[in-house]
Design a protein around this nucleic acid. Sequence first.
RNA 1: GCGAGCGUGGCGAAACUGGCAGACGCGCAGGACUUAGGAUCCUGUCCCGCAAGGGGUGCGGGUUCGAAUCCCGCCGUUCGCACCA
Length: 803
Amino acid sequence: MTQTHAVSQDPYVPEAIEAKWQARWAERHANEPDLDAPVRPFYNLMMFPYPSAEGLHVGNMFAFTGSDVFGRFKRLQGFDVFEPIGFDAFGIHSENYAIKVGIHPGELIPRNIENFRRQLRRIGGMFDWRQELATTDPRYYKWTQWLFLQLYQAGKAYQKMGSVNWCPECKTVLANEQVIAGFCERHGDTKVEQRTLEQWYFKITDYAERLLANLDDAGVMDWSSTTTTAQRNWIGRSEGADVDFPVEGHDPIRVFTTRPDTIFGATFMVLAPEHPLVATLTSDDQRDAVDQYLERVATEDLVSRRVGDREKTGVFTGGYAVNPATGKPIPVWLADYVLMEYGTGAIMAVPAHDERDLEFAETYGLDVVSVIDDKGRLKASGPFDGRPAVEALPDIIRWLEDKGSGTGTVLYRLYDWCISRQRYWGPPIPIIYCEDCGTVPVPEEDLPVLLPPLDDFRPDDSGVSPLARNEEWYLVPCPECGKPARRETDVSDTFLDSAWYYLRYPSAEFDDRPFDAGRTRTWCPVATYIGGNEHAVLHLLYSRFIAMVLHDLGFIDFEEPFVKFRAHGLIVKDGAKMSKSRGNIVIPDQFIETWGADTFRLYLMFLGPFQEGGDFRDEGISGPRRFLDRVWNLVTRVVSAPTPSDATPRSVLVKWHQTTHQVTHDLEGLKYNTAIAALMELLNTLREHDVADRSIVEDLILMLAPFCPHFAEECWERLGHDSSVFEASWPGWDERLLVEDEIEVVIQVNGKTRSRVAVPRDATEDAVFAAALADPTTLRFIDGKAVRKRIYVPGRLVNLVLG
RNA sequence: GCGAGCGUGGCGAAACUGGCAGACGCGCAGGACUUAGGAUCCUGUCCCGCAAGGGGUGCGGGUUCGAAUCCCGCCGUUCGCACCA
């Protein structure tokens, strides 16, 4: 862009000044706070990117810029801001990308990281590059493995066989959340299958109650409510009761129900096909039917069973259980709408008051007994008849407890975190299996367990990790007895890498500890964390869980890692989601080249509310650029021919102070788009009144600095300062200058705006009404009628209600 | 199906605890300066109307002196969760 935007002989040329200031920041170590002895530490964290594509896209830029604006604002407010950056470079996304382009991730990922670094420097983020980290660095993942060992030793990591989701295309196990309605999240037309594998799990369910309770504690967690809501739903707390239904000659069947108040209406029971009692309950004459049904279910995958709108199928076991409330025998059925992983894998079916049970009962002709009338009162419920069901619920639980038939319980939907991945690109799980000693953790002094270079890193459909094909790597002596043993060949989930990275940043240079106690105390928990809401449950919940474990083990003195979390919005393009298939991806580099990083930043922050996102329209960027050109010209004018401060009209002073007030509050609330609009208004006012008042323009530059750091530095220097604009302090305002001497009050007649009058700022209510009633336009609308009621909103509005 | 959010000009969007709807910007129209302008500057820009005035925040009701904002019922849209007992 070499066109002249301004009449000035010295036009604003972004590329020159951006390069100049980036070099100068690096020289001056401008973005490197004293990590050991900061005066006012402020840990400003943004979710680190995964370098799974060749470069950062506009969505990343939007998120990083929004976080950086906040960090720079805090810096100007006098905080020692620590704003680290790193790369979440392990994991399925990176690996799949490597497979796609046919380059080994060990080669490809560092190359991508280098490009990410270049882009991040170019955008002018306030990053402390000393503390950069990559989860793929053995210096990092040594401690990820250490973390696994801490959980293992604390009894929070265990192995179990489990039905897992298997994507034939990814050739790996998927987390439930990577399965979208039965299909792989990455391969929309690939059906996920069910496989059974031995896997490592973390006992996050032990922490369900604490994870939930802290969400309600605003003193501990100041988070976007959309995020806390998502976590609450994910944890899924249900209050109810475990109830035993006796079976003659067998163990009783235990069910979980949230509706013990409807127990008198339980007319049959349903077990999950995998339920352990199925075999013993089945009668001889039903054996064939049951076996057939089990066979049929087995050919279906776990995931499509979860899809809700299918017709219900099932089979009678031939067995009966006794309803402990009515004492009557009820048939026990088998159906795949009951899931083994939730509750006890068995339910009492109350078809009169549960839609799913009703559908099943109707299909198979089972009894339906209503126990609640249309007024919500119990009936056919023995001693509880006539009582409102909601109210009787706790008494029914107590009644069941007294009979020894059940107990009130709380159940969570949350399940344990499966961290095993049958993949190559991750930290090997630090476990060794010995025939004599069993499962042996790798001794801490042997960490890291290096991920070996492996030419053939692709997963195959055998279900075992690529590392299992590398005998010389996995055959090792047992650390305990020295006999030949075998390493665990699965790697851990990427979410484990990212669950603790914020702890590593302040301590990234230490190789003898994962995080330094002093540094952690100084900087953690994180003051402000900004990231995408797509991580609302997974990353953010896992990070919270890991922090709780570390807290309980005495490693850290807080249990919530992120004091304040805000989810940013998403950028769309011309009303549609950006995607490669649509071909509407915006490459940031081109825009930065054409318009400059500062203009790009300013535009991104201007195009919509940060927490909601916005629509990226190519032409829109010219507005912010025009604005910067005008500010530039104004600065030039202040340097050459300023207007004297005492000549500045009061109305302009008021606008100045109002702007400072508004921008400060808007930045605090991440309302960047309105903050920028306010700065534009201030500039418009200065231009209208032809004012080039040095004090005002300097404040304008200061307030622009978080958005356009290079531009602001350059202007600041031209204004004669020899230190960085970020060494200056954020402007304040004078409350007395927030209001004009004379204000305009709106006059409504019968609620409709009819006129407006100018009154002194401190006019009394009576004086305002007097002015209103003296206004000719107003009188015309009153038209001689009586004023029945007068409403007065101080300083704003008068409403005259006619009789 | 359940949960959360969002529906405002040609477009992106503003509007504090209910109090001037459309700030700011894009685009568009007209003008100025210009050999020229896709640069810059000025003016205008929700709709109908010459005006006075009237209408207007997805649709239909309600509360209120007053509703984009609160309540109820629809419709549309986005994002989660999805047979969770």
